[in-house]
């Protein structure tokens, strides 16, 4: 197969490194951008080495099989992905999570999988390593209207569920993050939330091939700030559905109530599918800021995975089932 070089792909949007962004901000302050705005085009900047999507990216560490996602949009840098995180168990400050999570012990981890299954199992990290690990380049769209493109490593959740043999009556999967009140400062700092962090999926969503248990990114093991050692990745839903640092998975009959559904039932629903048509009550979901870019891009239905997942919701009113 012929390798497509990034220069051949013309992304609709301009992507910039932070320094490029800085330069453009300088241009902007000079007023030159006002001219660019008049003809309706974002400024065009040429690709420079070190930019996301650049072929000179270190092929070994960190590594990804491609510089772009299937839409031709460049990957975010390892640095951005590992230094801009929502992980309230550590702090609500996205920039500070990496520092607070540094060195968080995840080597002796276990995930209990039970509930309505024939074969309840506790998976050790070695057990998880026995699954065939593959790379998946997914867009991650945060409910706060920013997004990244991330090369995850992991395996479909369906493979893990197959091992425990769900009973026929199981209709939902309930996930729980570690509730380590000693090791993570967020629990005492934010008593407002009903800890632990809980998320849920409908059985068909959980069994969907796009739904991933991720154990790494950019070819490396996950760092604590990204939800080490194992987390969920559901790319067509807002980021908060992709629960981090999972310790417990239960198959149940009742729809799990997530932490965010508890905190603000009118704002965060069970489904939380990325949907530009259904706004957050307080802000628009019609556009998003791709980290590293200037300006905004329009948010895609189901985050661009409509072909794969729209059928799961046929006949449902997505404004009601938000």
């Amino acid at each position: 197969m012929r390798k497509i070089s990034p220069s051949e792909i013309t992304p609709e949007h301009v992507y910039l490194s932070r320094r490029e962004l800085l330069k453009s901000m300088g241009i902007l302050m000079g007023g030159a951008a006002l001219l660019a705005a008049c003809n309706g085009n974002p400024p065009t900047l040429t690709l420079e080495p070190g930019l996301p999507g650049d072929p000179t990216i270190d092929p070994v560490d960190p590594s990804a099989s491609s510089n772009v996602d299937e839409l031709g949009d460049p990957l975010n840098t390892f640095d951005d992905i590992t230094n801009y995180n929502n992980f309230y168990e550590f702090t609500t400050d996205k920039i500070d999570v990496a520092r607070l999570a540094e060195g968080y012990p995840t080597s002796t981890w276990e995930i209990q999988v039970g509930g309505l299954v024939h074969n309840p199992t506790t998976f050790s990290m070695d057990d998880l390593r026995n699954f065939e690990i593959e790379e998946r380049i997914y867009r991650m769209r945060c409910v706060e209207a920013w997004s990244m493109v991330i090369p995850w490593m992991g395996f479909p959740l369906s493979k893990l569920l197959a091992k425990v043999e769900p009973k026929a009556e199981a209709t939902y999967v309930r996930f729980e993050t570690i509730h380590d009140t000693k090791g993570m400062p967020g629990f005492s700092k934010y008593p407002f939330y009903q800890w632990p962090y809980v998320e849920g999926l409908r059985m068909d969503e959980a069994m969907h091939d796009l739904t991933l248990i991720s154990t790494g990114l950019y070819g490396k093991d996950l760092l604590p700030q990204n939800g080490a050692p194992a987390r969920l990745v559901v790319p067509w839903k807002y980021g908060f559905k992709s629960i981090k640092s999972i310790v417990k998975i239960d198959l149940v009959t009742e729809m799990p109530i997530s932490l965010w559904m508890n905190a603000a039932p009118n704002e965060y629903g069970f489904y939380a599918n990325v949907n530009p048509e259904v706004d957050h009550p307080r802000w628009s979901q019609g556009s998003e800021r791709r980290i590293g870019e200037l300006g905004r891009r329009e948010t895609l239905m189901f985050n661009g995975y409509a072909d794969e997942v729209a059928a799961l919701y046929s006949g449902m009113d997505l404004a009601i089932n938000f």
Binding site: S24, L28, A37, D279, L294
Partner: peptide
């Protein structure tokens, strides 16, 4: 100018339809 890059359609939606 930077966040919405003068995208008037998006600005109109963000600025005039959202209470914040």
């Amino acid at each position: 100018g930077v966040d919405y890059f003068f995208d008037l359609t998006l600005i109109k939606e963000a600025l005039l339809e959202k209470r914040y």
